[in-house]
Structures are given as C-alpha cells and as structure tokens.
Design a protein around this nucleic acid. Structure first.
Length: 443
RNA sequence: GGAGGCGUCGCCUAGUCCGGUCUAUGGCGCCGCACUGCUAAUGCGGUUUGGGUUCAUCCCCAUCGAGGGUUCAAAUCCCUCCGCCUCCGCCA
C-alpha cells in the first residue's frame, strides 16, 4: 500500500506510476472519490457516536439517584432521555455500518494499486530492461575443442539429477536431486549461509505454508496469484519464496529504530504453479514447481533502503563471483516489477547451451509497500512510521546448479567444483560419474 | 482428538461474579522537569496504537486476543472463532 497522503495531496504521482507499469490509472480516481466519501462517513459516525456517549453519561447518574429516591419527576426525566437515546442508537448503528462498508471499499481498491515505481526503472515490458554490467567471460568451448552439454545431460551423466522419476512421482517440472546432486545443494546452502552470516544476517528456517494475510500482505495475490498454490481445505498458501514468511514475521509489530537494519537469511522450499509458462523451459530443472532457496530479507529505515538495495545486489554478486560464473546485471523494466517492487535488479547467469543469460537472482526494493500492508512500523525519536523492506535471492538451488554444471563442465562429462564450494564437499575438486545409483527402469 | 486454565495500553498487574464513578488501577521500565559537588535517591508530570480535525495546541472517534450479538450504555453479559499454557490420548 502507498502512503494515503500522496493520494490526497498529489494523486498524479500514483497515476503516473500506474501508467509506467502498464496498469490502470483510472483506479486512482476511483480511490480519490472513495477515500473522501469514507472519511466523510467516518466523521459522521464519530460525531453521532459522541452525542450518544454524552447522552449515555447523563442517564447513568440519574438512574443511580432514581434507585435511592424514586420520584415521578425524576422518572419522567429518565424516560425522556431514554427515548432520545433509543432513537439515536439506531442511527449510530446505521452510520457505523455505512462507514465500515466504505472503509472496506477503500481497502479493496488499495489492494489493487501496485507500489510507486522508482522513476529510474526503465519503462516498458519484460524485454525493456537495461543492462547495468557484464561480469566474467563466457568460456569458448569451440576453442577448447568440444561441444558443451546441457545441464540435464551432465546431471544425468553424473547421476545428480533425476527428472524421469520426478515426473513419475509428482508430474512434470518435478525432479529428484540424487547423490552428489543432493550433496551439491547442501554445499551451496552452507556456502550461502556462511556468507550471509558473515554479512550480519540471521539464519532462518521458515514455514512454507502461510495464512492468506501473509500472502496478501506481501503482494502475491494480485497479478501473481495464478502462480500460487492454494490449499483449499485449510485456506492456506504454499509460498513461492521465503520472502513471504520473512516479511510477515514482524507483521503488526513496531521495531525500535536502533534494532534496524534487521537482516534475515531464510531457507525454505518454494512452490510455483508456473501457470502461463507451459512450453517454456520444459527440459531440465530451470523452471520447476518446487525448489529450495536461500533468500535475504531486510527491514530498514526508508531513508536507508536505496543504499541497502545496492548492498544486497553486491552480496548477490559476491556469491555468483565465488562460484566463478559469468553473469550480467539488469535493471528490470516497470512492467516486469511485480506489484510490490519499486525497483528490481536481476542477475542473469550465462548458460552456454542456450547461448544467453538467464535469471538466477532478483533483488527488489519494496519501499514501504509491504510494511504498510503488513502493519510493520519503526519507532524513532519523532514517533512511529512504516519502515522499508527489501528482498534478494542469495541462492536459488536449481538454477545455480544449472549454471555450475554447464559452465564448469569438462569434455568427459565431469564437472569442476569452484574453489569456494570445495570445503563443503569434503575437498573434492570434481563431480564425476558414481557407480551406486540405478538407472531409471532398472528393477 | 478430549478435559481444564488463560489472553487488559513495552513488561507485570487490578478490574470481569453484580454493565454506568473505567476518562482502564498500581508497580517496573522509559522520557521530561525540579532538587542535588557528580551519581544515586526523592518529588512532580508524561508515557498503547490507529484514524479524523488543526499551522500547532486542543478536541473527537475507535482500540481490553478477533468477529458478531444484547443494551440508552459492554473490559464486564451472550455466541462464534483464534492463540498460548497444563494434563490425557494418538503420532513423528
């Protein structure tokens, strides 16, 4: 949610943001009208309620007197007041219901408005991003004298990835990480968590099932709703990222300014329906329904948010650097920000067999948008105010595994392990074909 | 799943039986002022959150886990739900 003062003082700012996103600016005009109406109705109720309270306070003491010394005169006085009060009660109730209905209408409209875009975000759709930098040089496999294999071929060769049995057990876009594939994920987890810990993050293992208000508050029930799994029988949602539980963690709380910034590194499974992506990335583990991820999540003073966003991006780069993977950083365009982000940077890793860069991490500055929805505030000397939240991927397992397998493969199908990862794999320098796992179809 | 207990403005707590002196008590903590070589102690005042109004002060409304209901009037009475604790049963 956006600061309602902006709606009242300068609604054009919100209209412009909606236009840049390719969303409906007329929503803002609906909101302006609804907001005025709701405040009028609230004021009407407040005043009516005030008269009722004053009247009620007159009746109380009179009732007391009447009990001690009953007199017809007093009785008449009380009766008269009661008559007025009874009539008023109905009006108060009606006014209250009207005001509540209007307030709800305003809330519903606000839920449809996305965050104000950062004016530096490039305007346009998915393809209108701006490349900020390219880091590292893709390997020249031709010069090395062999054709690179795709990650699935390599993964199957070293018995690290099993998509056939994944599909057998759970359907398409599911997979098993087996043997050293599983160990590779654990190693990446440990590397990521060590880095996060060194950067002052608090490690967190979060719920993967959340209540509707957590999903709503983080902004995933808007346009992104079709990609969210819902557990109908219990009215809960499977999270697509631990950003959701990490944001809702402090909902309805007021955090002292001196405790900020609060940095959390969450580890959870992530679930995505990938609706509307049918036909894209159908082989391998680039686009899957379930994966594990280490996510950075920060609560900070809004004045610090932009600098923190840069820091998170740097930590993401540090991690990919450590894995020795070539990548580029893009400034995501307004149409591709999602409802919560004001600005978003993606890191895209080089995927040799696709000959292009593919998203492996994403960091968003959601400014005060989520904090307002989730009622998270900070307290400093001048009072309480909404704080800012930011998120960024530290390590999304399958895609990082894809990037490692493809970029560090050898002609014989083995894979070199980046030096930073070796300590977490017992010092091994390569992933090679093991003997113990059976082929699919073998009894 | 069964039985019982509990949920009050940072923390602890009074109030709930019996509705109106609750404009929610007291203590701790915190903030300000006074006193004082300094500190401590003491005294006085302030201290939930959100909304409306205002230059600001003031004032008004809501808020006693949440939502309904009864009533002129609800922390207090009734109903539903949620959470926590204890015990029992089942299970990882």
């Amino acid at each position: 949610m956006i600061d309602p003062q902006i709606l009242r003082n300068d609604p054009e700012v919100i209209r412009e943001s909606q236009r840049r996103r390719g969303e409906d600016p007329a929503l803002v005009d609906q909101l302006v009208a609804a907001d005025i109406g709701a405040r009028q109705d609230q004021q009407f109720f407040d005043d009516l309620r005030n008269t009722q309270k004053i009247l009620s306070k007159e009746i109380g003491p009179l009732q007391g007197q009447l009990k001690k010394n009953p007199s017809p005169e007093l009785q008449q006085q009380v009766d008269q007041l009661m008559e007025k009060a009874t009539a008023l009660a109905a009006d108060v109730k009606a006014a209250e219901q009207k005001a509540a209905a209007k307030a709800q209408e305003v809330d519903q409209l606000w839920l449809q408005v996305s965050n104000l875009v950062d004016l530096r975000s490039p305007v346009g759709g998915e393809d209108d991003f701006v490349v900020l930098e390219e880091v590292g040089t893709p390997r020249d496999f031709a010069a090395e004298g062999f054709e690179p294999k795709d990650h699935l071929t390599i993964g199957q060769g070293i018995k690290a990835i099993d998509t056939e049995r994944g599909a057998k057990v759970s359907g398409s876009r599911f997979y098993f990480l087996t043997g050293q594939g599983a160990m590779l994920e654990f190693a990446l987890l440990n590397l990521a968590m060590s880095q996060a810990l060194a950067n002052g993050f608090i490690p967190m293992i979060t719920p993967a099932l959340v209540l509707p208000q957590a999903m709503e508050g983080t902004g995933f029930l808007g346009q992104a709703a079709e990609n969210v799994y819902r557990i109908e029988s219990d009215d809960m949602y499977l999270v697509g990222t631990s950003e959701v539980p990490l944001a809702a963690y402090h909902s309805d709380e007021i955090i002292p300014a001196k405790e900020l910034p609060l940095r959390y590194a969450g580890w959870s499974s992530c679930f995505r329906r990938e609706a509307g992506a049918s036909g894209r990335d159908t082989t391998g583990i680039i686009r899957v329904h379930q994966f594990d991820k280490v996510e950075m999540f920060v609560y900070c003073d809004p004045a610090e948010a932009e600098a923190e966003h840069e820091r998170i991006l740097q930590w993401e780069k540090d991690f990919i650097d450590a894995l020795e993977i070539p990548y580029r950083v893009i400034d995501v365009a307004t149409g591709d920000l999602g409802s919560s982000a004001a600005r978003k940077f993606d890191i895209e890793a080089w995927i040799p067999t696709q000959g292009k860069y593919r998203e492996v991490t994403s960091t968003s500055n959601t400014t005060e948008f989520q904090a307002r929805r989730l009622k998270i505030r900070m307290r400093n000397d001048s009072g309480t105010k909404p704080l800012a939240t930011l998120n960024g991927t530290l390590c999304a397992m399958p895609r990082i595994i894809v990037a490692i397998l493809e970029n560090h493969q050898n002609a014989n199908g083995s894979v070199n392990i980046p030096a930073a990862l070796r300590p977490y794999l017992g010092g091994a320098k390569q992933l090679t074909e093991p003997k113990q796992l059976t082929e699919p179809g073998t009894p």
